[in-house]
Design a protein around this nucleic acid. Structure first.
Length: 248
DNA sequence: ATGACTGAGCATCTCAGA
């Protein structure tokens, strides 16, 4: 979801209703000091990586977790974009990402997206080499296949579907990760995002760009993975909906 | 073919989002 300060009650309602063990948030659009404090009284510990105006990620857990990284290893030392949080729940590593969109900033903006994806691939490879159990989830800003966006919802050369974007995404998957939503629903459109413009929700002109990728042992425990599309029809909704992942 | 919504910020416009 975008803009946590606008939608703190949406999140609180979701936590109370669904009671996830862990909730990963993206596109907070606020600094850490401005992150809403009220989730603690619902029993959730918060870890926030924020910045002014843009980006921002967080983890909310009712299970105890430790923060392992607040920046994606492998990026430039002075990279200040708040897009990555890596936490550990015992033997399980969970990475929450807000992957760069890549449509702004010209060639440099798109190159940054590809560099970010390569750094993510390298970090995931490192964790798999260590035999860690792993979930990588969040807003990937990648529609992996043509079925993953409605006709006309994106230009053919959009940074979310450009061949180099999809190749980078496949190189991540091919480390041995399972796309949890596609393991549950192998074919057909399943969207996680509908634009605010031009009646996109009413026309079901959506995208599948929010993913949950599982390492092999975690994939064996997969029970369900489904976007909560009803959240898109709330008052003042985010343009993204939550993706609920259940592992046994 | 065109236009279109939302939030944040040194703000009545620009930038970014996707």
């Amino acid at each position: 979801m975008n803009s946590i300060r606008q939608r703190a009650t949406h999140v609180a309602d979701y936590l109370a209703r669904v009671q996830p063990d862990l909730l990963l948030l993206q596109e907070l659009k606020c600094e850490e000091t401005a992150f809403p404090a009220g989730f603690a009284e619902l029993g959730y510990q918060a870890a926030v990586v924020g910045q002014k105006a843009y980006n921002g990620v967080a983890a909310l857990g009712r299970v105890k977790f430790d923060v392992v990284h607040r920046k994606l290893p492998g990026l430039a030392e002075d990279d200040a974009q708040a897009r990555y949080i890596e936490v550990a729940i015992g033997d399980l590593t969970v990475i929450g990402i807000y992957l760069p969109n890549g449509n702004s900033g010209g060639d440099a903006g798109y190159d940054y997206k590809l560099a970010w994806m390569e750094a993510l691939r390298a970090r995931v490879a490192e964790l798999l080499d260590q035999d860690r159990d792993l979930v990588v989830t969040g807003d990937f800003n990648v529609a992996p296949e043509d079925v993953d966006y409605a006709k006309g919802a994106l230009a053919p050369n959009d940074a979310l579907v450009r061949p180099a974007t999809r190749a980078a995404y496949r190189s991540l998957l091919w480390l041995g990760l399972t796309d949890a939503l596609r393991a549950i629903t192998p074919t057909g459109p399943v969207y996680t995002f509908w634009d605010y413009q031009a009646g996109a929700r009413q026309r079901n002109s959506g995208l599948r760009i929010d993913h949950a990728l599982l390492s092999p042992r975690v994939a064996e425990r997969l029970v369900s993975c489904v976007p909560d599309s009803a959240e898109r029809d709330r008052v003042q909704p985010s343009d993204h909906v939550p993706v609920l992942l259940e592992i046994g």
